[in-house]
Design a protein around this nucleic acid. Sequence first.
DNA 1: TAATATAGACCAACCAGTCGGTTTGTTATT
DNA 2: AATAACAAACCGACTGGTTGGTCTATATTA
Lengths: 200, 200
Amino acid sequence: MKQEERSQETRSRILQAAERSFAERGYDITSVDSICRAAEISKGGFYHHFPSKGAVFAALLDAWLARLDAGFLRAKEGHARVPDQIAAMAASIDSIYDLAGSSWNILLEVWAKARTDPAAQASTLTTLRRYQRFFAELLQRGVDEGSLTVDDVELQARVLLSAVLGLLLQGILEGGSADWGRETKRTVSFMMDGVVRRTR
Amino acid sequence: MKQEERSQETRSRILQAAERSFAERGYDITSVDSICRAAEISKGGFYHHFPSKGAVFAALLDAWLARLDAGFLRAKEGHARVPDQIAAMAASIDSIYDLAGSSWNILLEVWAKARTDPAAQASTLTTLRRYQRFFAELLQRGVDEGSLTVDDVELQARVLLSAVLGLLLQGILEGGSADWGRETKRTVSFMMDGVVRRTR
DNA sequence: TAATATAGACCAACCAGTCGGTTTGTTATT
DNA sequence: AATAACAAACCGACTGGTTGGTCTATATTA
């Protein structure tokens, strides 16, 4: 096997093992040794690829945020009218639950770490504000194209964002049962119809 | 000083010190030694009062939930009409922020721990469901007394609960700035007026 | 041979919890 | 009131075990 290829593979094995353990057991409890065991790698290998345990977490967080960004772009590129786009987003909720599985758990880990780690806090707040802007722009577009009636865009966007965050949090705490995915979808659909009043 | 009095005092000193450190630095990072130092107590004293570090956390959680229960009872005893009661609750939001200060931080710690610790998960889920029921009953009472129009009580209660949770989460992550308290209050007020439509 | 990748023994720091012993407060006895 | 007997509160050195990280040696690739 080529060198770079091999290196890349072990690196991703480490990341995978770390992500699983961080999500399932939490950052602090997860030891570097256990990551090495799960990744079938030695400690030397680990520290050859990453300078510290925290660096692995940071890399994981970056990857997560990058995936989120990709989702943003895709959502923005859709040229459907806003109510339809919102409906589509709501419909895709439970597939997101399935797809990501327990990987949402790491979100809670990030939030918990954000209280201590300034870097984690910064990227968390940045992400939240980006979501806020995303929702606000979506609603504004709806107003502009005449498909929505919204009194206060920023405020309503915050309500939407908060509710989604709350649902996500509950979903994580519930342990990601299939039931919860369905309930979440129902709730979001209702919210979209109720909170965001369509223009008559 | 009397024996029981003294004992009670050191016990509460331990609890106070532990709460602060758990909230500021997190459960795992906080060492028993540091708690002892902050409480100006020896390790022997610590383990005289509590069987383990986890027991301190559990005691803290119980106290927190008890305070929550007290709040519930007070809210239920109010005999105002539902829209007024909701308005009053919204108005008291930022005072809650001030009062509790950083003690909300411990909520995030509980949530993070809930993924690992079955006891923490159980009490977290129980609390969430109790809140869900609380909101649902509140809305139902509004419908019964003819002051609210609500399509689906359970669903709308979930929206309310989720949004409040999301706001709380953001508040904790923001570090509890005064700004956020005001914004939260505005958002909740708006939500109460918007999501829960008054009967015309 | 040179550079990169992996191995695993090793280390200092730290941590939760223990234990033998001391101080302080309470109760019973004289 | 003085003392003895007891129990609860407290102390801090110590232990067994774990942790994140280092270092030297070996293997693989270029």
